[in-house]
Amino acid sequence: MNPRIREAGLLLTIVALMLLLAWRTTGFFSAANLTDLFLANMPVMMIAVGMMMVILTGEIDISVGSIFAISSVVMGKCASTGVPIWLSGLIACAVGVLLGALNGRLIAYVRIPSIVATLATMVALRDGLRWYTQGSWIQGLPAGFQWFGMSQSGFTGLCVVAVVLITGLTALGLRNLRMGRAIVATGSNRMAACAAGIDARRVVFGVFAVTGGLAGLSAVLNSVRFNQIPSNSGLGLELKVIAAVAVGGAAITGGSATMTGTVLGVILLSCIGSALTFLGINAYWEKAIQGGIILIAVAADTLKLQRRDHAKTLPA
C-alpha cells in the first residue's frame, strides 16, 4: 500500500531505460529532443493531472480525447474568424470546462456511472464534431497564431511554466487545501466523507469540470504549435492518459494516487514510443510493449505487497 515503493520502482525503470538509451543511442538527451518530447506529450501530462483527480474520487473519464478535439476546433474557428487569439484560447478552455461540467452533472447529480456517462459523451461528441466539420481542417489562421506570436523557445518556456504550475499547485492543493482533502476523502470512502460534511457530489462535479478545462487548455496550447488545425485530433488520448495514471500507481477504486507517481507514469509511457525509434526497434511492436508495461507495472505492485484484504480489491 505504500506508494513510495511503487514510485521507486517506476523511477528505477525509467533510469534503466535512460541508461539503455544513453548507452545505445546518441542524441536522445539533446536539448532539442527533450523539448520535442515534452511538447508532444504536454497534452497527456496536463490531462493526466485532471484524470488523476477523477480517479482519486473513484470515477473515470474516457471522453477527454473528444473534448480535446472539440476545443481545438473551437480555438481554430474563433481565431480564423478574427477573434483575438487570447480570447479564442479562453473560449476554447471555457468550452472544455463546459463539456467537463456536462460529464460532472450527469455523473454527480443524475448519478450515471462515470464509465457509462463518459462513454456516451465520448461517442456523441466525437461523431457530432465529425458531423459538423465533415472532416475539413481549419485553415487561414492569423499570422500571430503560431506560438501566440512568440518565439518558439518563448512558447516552450510558457508551456513548461504552465505544466509545472499545474502539477505543482495540484500536488500542493491535494495535500493542503480543504478542497484537495475533500477529493481524497470522497474517493477513499464516500459515505464517510458525506458524514464528515463534505458535499461529495460537488467534489465529483468539480473534478470532471476541471479535467474538461485541462483538456481544453492542452488543446489550446497544442493547436498553436501549428498553423492549421485538423478536426480529428486526440483520438485514443483518453487511453494514453488513463494508462499513464494507472502506471503511476493510482488505485482505480479511488482514494489513492500521488502526483509524483502520475508524473513518472507519464514520463515512462511518453518516452517508450520515442525510445523505440531511437533504439531502432520496429514500430510494429510499440502497442504490445506499451501494453506489457501497463500490465507489469500494475502486477508488480501486488506481487511486492502481500495484500490481506483481497475482497476489497476485487473488480468493483
Binding site: I60, I115, L239, I242, A243, A246, A251, I252, T253, W285, E286, K287, A288, I289, Q290, G291, G292, I294, L295, V298, A299, T302, R307, H310, T313, L314, P315
Partner: peptide, 17 residues
C-alpha cells in the same frame, strides 16, 4: 486481485500489439 479495468486496458493494447 488486480483491477479489471486497468488489466484489460493493458491487454487491450498488448493483444492488438
Amino acid at each position: 486481485d488486480l483491477p479489471a479495468l486497468i488489466i484489460t486496458l493493458g491487454t487491450y493494447s498488448l493483444y492488438r500489439g
